[in-house]
Design a protein around this nucleic acid. Structure first.
Lengths: 143, 143
DNA sequence: GCTCAATAATTGATACGTCAACTAATATAA
DNA sequence: TTATATTAGTTGACGTATCAATTATTGAGC
């Protein structure tokens, strides 16, 4: 008697479309991809960290982490070195240049986010975050 | 005086992560990707449609539409033919097999969505959809 | 000490979305 | 009617995420 499933479907489709629209917009606004900025931000918060620990923080695939860090190293934003005590570990840290650049990126990100949420009240933001957290939990524990 | 920006950032990061987690889960649960199922669903609703019109409905890049349809054609789920009146247009329709298979896919999709939203009340779902719609609008009109 | 398991990182294969460049067909305007 | 613009579709290059397989190093059990 209700059209509730139709609306549920819209929610999932909306999530999908938001993502697709966000990716290019985020990068054109900030000058860097969301994932890469997240990696840099984690590095910003610490002196040095192993790739493994970093990967656990950002929670994306090892392979992607390796590739991003290599490219960031090529750009001179990041420094990587092997742990002399345990050669399996690679430690990563921000270069001076990286540390400077990230500030600008983060300002742009803040501007972007403000735009995306500009018409949301503090209460709505809270509700939304809480709902998204539940969805994420449900997805991870589904099946 | 508030930590509101931190939370805003969490919202955006959550959206990103939800997407990343959903993509593989959706496909392993339903047996097909979200985009492809959306294409098939649109085809299910009509007798025949041009690729151009279909592309406008699902709102993804032309190139992606072409590739999906070619692959679906190879799998025998879709039939494509040129418009004899205007050879620029390619019309697409579901094959018998496609029409049968899509039913199963959609059942699985429904099960997936139910799982993801199982602890949301009808009111919450409504609120969520409304919020996501606003976000999508904001992203599209940003800058 | 030596074999085998565990761990970190890397590489390869695959998927899919974007943009840009291109082809082919049709419409328009001089 | 002939040159030019527009439109639909295709293809190529690129970025980036996933999973699976591989390499290199270290740890554990015998």
């Amino acid at each position: 008697m209700s059209n509730s499933y139709i609306d549920d479907e819209k929610i999932i489709n909306r999530l999908y479309e938001i993502h697709r629209r966000t990716v290019p917009k985020f990068e054109s606004c900030t000058g860097i991809s969301q994932t890469r900025l997240e990696l840099l931000h984690e590095l910003y918060e610490v002196e040095e960290i192993s790739q493994r620990a970093l990967q656990k923080k950002v929670n994306i695939d090892h392979a992607a982490v390796t590739r991003h860090l290599k490219q960031l190293e090529d750009k001179g934003m990041v420094i990587r070195r092997k742990d002399p005590k345990d050669q399996r570990f690679t430690y990563v840290s921000l270069s001076e240049e990286g540390r400077l650049k990230i500030i600008h990126y983060r300002e742009e990100k803040e501007r972007f986010i403000s735009g995306v949420l500009h018409d949301f009240s503090a209460k709505e933001r809270k509700t939304l975050l809480e709902m998204l957290t539940r969805i994420q939990h449900n997805i991870e524990h589904f099946e």
